[in-house]
């Protein structure tokens, strides 16, 4: 159990996907204007991450032992079809949620965080439960980073910011300071 908790905490804060590993930067920069949107995007991502972890485990255990060179191609195909299926299921089961998530669902396919999760999970050789814990931790970390960024951007909206700094430059500079703060969690590694 300690091992699983550790994987979760490590994926969420110490090696936060967005702020420490630079994965999933597109939604981080693109949809971090509002806290509500950021939360929804984080939730959608977490869901797909968990589903991916399950699929990747199945692929790694039963298929890729026979054809390791197909790793990347099979991952990307599985992720793309997974997102498509999730989209159809949500549309059928809960049209309200589908409307709320809107365009964010298909965008998740090309989110580096998902493929990154699949690759890390493979290279670290996680088993089923470890993979799940890793995926939930990574999703929580993504959501945390998105919500933090959205809250800062919401409160900086009325500030008098010079024109050239507005937009992506400002987001990156804020992300830099957030990333600095997250480096403090690295201390968990030695004491944990």
């Amino acid at each position: 159990m300690g091992e699983l908790t550790w994987i979760f905490v490590s994926a969420m804060v110490v090696n936060n996907f967005t702020l420490m590993l630079f994965l999933g930067l597109c939604p981080f920069i693109g949809v971090s204007n509002r806290i509500a949107t950021a939360l929804r995007m984080g939730a959608a991502n977490t869901f797909v991450l968990v589903m991916t972890a399950v699929c990747v485990w199945v692929l790694n255990t039963f298929v890729l032992v026979y054809a390791p060179y197909l790793r990347l191609i099979s991952f990307i195909v599985v992720i793309a079809s997974l997102v498509q299926i999730v989209e159809m299921v949500i549309k059928k089961v809960s049209p309200v949620l589908f409307r709320e998530l809107g365009i964010y669902l298909p965008l998740i396919t090309t989110n580096c965080a998902i493929l990154g999760l699949a690759i890390f999970q493979t290279s670290r050789g996680y088993d089923f439960l470890e993979g799940l814990s890793f995926a939930v931790g990574a999703g929580a970390g993504l959501t945390l980073a998105l919500v933090l960024m959205a809250s800062i951007r919401e409160s900086s909206e009325l500030a008098n910011i010079p024109q050239p700094v507005r937009g992506t430059a400002l987001v990156l500079l804020i992300a830099g300071s957030l990333s600095l703060a997250f480096m403090g969690f690295a201390g968990l590694l030695s004491s944990g």
Binding site: L19, Q163, A169, V171, L172, L173, G176, S179, M183
Partner: peptide, 17 residues
């Protein structure tokens, strides 16, 4: 380290802007 990447690219985009 990671923060340096964010800060450098932020500064570059600022200059380009």
């Amino acid at each position: 380290l990671p923060p340096g990447g964010f800060l450098t690219l932020g500064a570059l985009l600022l200059v380009v802007g």
